[in-house]
């Protein structure tokens, strides 16, 4: 296990998108001595360009929508998004309030959801460690050599270079 984490020490970026502060201070507490997330090599940075894991708390308020997408695009690939707390997963108690978008995944893809109001530091650690796995997976996938196109195959009478031939006018969800 030690070998696995030594490869990379991911840095986290934390943004409050309208949460009640409860989850934010739990993130701080998770970084502090008792729970000590920093033993995984994780450090909190304020700079999106150096970060790997993006922790978001809170349901997304209207004014923070752009900031989230902006921060997300500034983080270099590979990146992992962790939604911390009930309200960033689904909207929580703030669901359907007029200035709130219910959950982070309406705007950016989320890899790990951590429920709880407020989340406990143990759960944050579990979530971030899970995020580390995903990060490693994503890194491997990025490093894997790949062909842009496959060999041309003919399936069901359609010739295509894609793995699954493009069909027009058919429901894709059946596959």
């Amino acid at each position: 296990m030690y070998e696995k984490y030594r490869k990379k020490s991911p840095w986290i970026l934390h943004y409050n998108a309208g949460s009640c502060n409860g989850c934010d201070i739990e993130i701080l507490a998770a970084l502090a001595p008792k729970y000590d997330l920093e033993r995984f090599g994780v450090i909190n940075t304020g700079n999106p360009k150096q970060s790997d894991i993006f922790l978001i708390t809170g349901p997304v308020t209207l004014r923070s929508r752009e900031r989230i997408v902006e921060l997300y695009t500034q983080i270099p690939e590979p990146k992992v998004v962790v939604a911390v707390g009930s309200c960033s997963c689904t909207g929580g108690v703030f669901r359907d309030m007029y200035n709130v978008e219910d959950g982070v995944d309406r705007y950016i893809p989320v890899d790990v959801y951590i429920p709880g109001c407020a989340v406990s530091p143990e759960l944050i650690i579990d979530g971030v460690v899970k995020g580390l796995d995903i990060l490693e997976q994503k890194t491997k996938e990025m490093e894997k050599p790949f062909k842009l196109f496959q060999e041309a195959t003919t399936k069901d009478g359609i010739t295509s270079r894609r793995e699954t031939p493009l069909r027009v006018g058919e429901d894709n969800e059946k596959n």
């Binding site: 309208g18 929580g92 703030f94």
Partner: peptide, 28 residues
């Protein structure tokens, strides 16, 4: 940046006996 609209929700969404738990979420 973190305006959510709790004051309105207290008068339209929740009954008075539940609001105590909603307003706790104004600030952690």
């Amino acid at each position: 940046f973190v305006h959510r609209g709790i004051e309105r929700a207290c008068t339209t969404k929740f009954k008075f006996d539940g609001i105590g738990y909603v307003v706790a979420r104004v600030c952690g």
